[in-house]
């Protein structure tokens, strides 16, 4: 398999602290209402306690990216060397097609630039040998940078409950499921 950088989201460790989301904002200063990384609480049908287990998600850097396929102006590229899906904002004409098409809601409309934008995996940091801002920020190492070609396959899943199963896109993000403690209640 070719090198494919991916986020490993370990919900067993994740404390839903939103640090990763704010670290991204701190780095890119997105406009109001534009969120590249969001922390989604799992609904109670999936994890039995409200707002106590989470999925931290940004772009999934899919193998067959919907965003790239539907963009009429070729504003997206998938990097040969590591599979990162980069959005080139200067090319974007703001048609909104990628926003409508990505099942994960990763691309967002920037109302000031009048163009789409999304997480491009901090590729400028990757190129300098650094971790993405969000990955570096995570206080529990629940969010990690992995290479799917090299990752030891153990208990990771690709499509946890709470995450759209889009096999055609083949999103690269991998997950570890949250656990519940023994409850002793009065």
């Amino acid at each position: 398999m070719k090198k494919q950088y991916a986020f490993l989201v370990d919900s067993e460790r994740c404390i839903g602290c939103f640090t990763c989301a704010m670290a991204c904002r701190n780095y890119y200063h997105q406009e109001e209402g534009v969120v590249w990384r969001q922390v989604y609480p799992l609904s109670e049908e999936i994890y039995p306690h409200r707002e106590r287990a989470f999925l931290s998600l940004a772009c999934n850097h899919c193998e067959d990216p919907a965003c790239l396929n539907v963009c009429p102006v070729n504003a997206y590229t998938k990097r040969e060397e590591d599979g990162v899906v980069v959005h080139h904002q200067e090319k974007c004409i703001g048609c909104g097609n990628c926003i409508r098409s990505c099942p994960y809601g990763a691309p967002k409309y920037n109302p000031v630039e009048k163009r789409a934008e999304k997480c491009s995996f901090c590729h400028e940091r990757l190129d300098a040998g650094l971790k993405p801002a969000c990955v570096q920020s995570c206080p529990t190492k629940a969010l990690q940078l992995v290479d799917l070609a090299e990752m030891q396959q153990t208990n990771q899943v690709q499509y946890p409950a709470g995450y759209p199963k889009m096999e055609k896109l083949n999103p690269s993000t991998r997950f570890i499921l949250p656990k519940t403690p023994k409850m002793v209640r009065r």
Partner: peptide, 14 residues
């Protein structure tokens, strides 16, 4: 600290 702050800490940039 290990290279990371918290959600509040990262809002200091603002």
């Amino acid at each position: 600290t290990d290279g990371g702050l918290c959600v509040k800490g990262y809002s200091y940039t603002r």
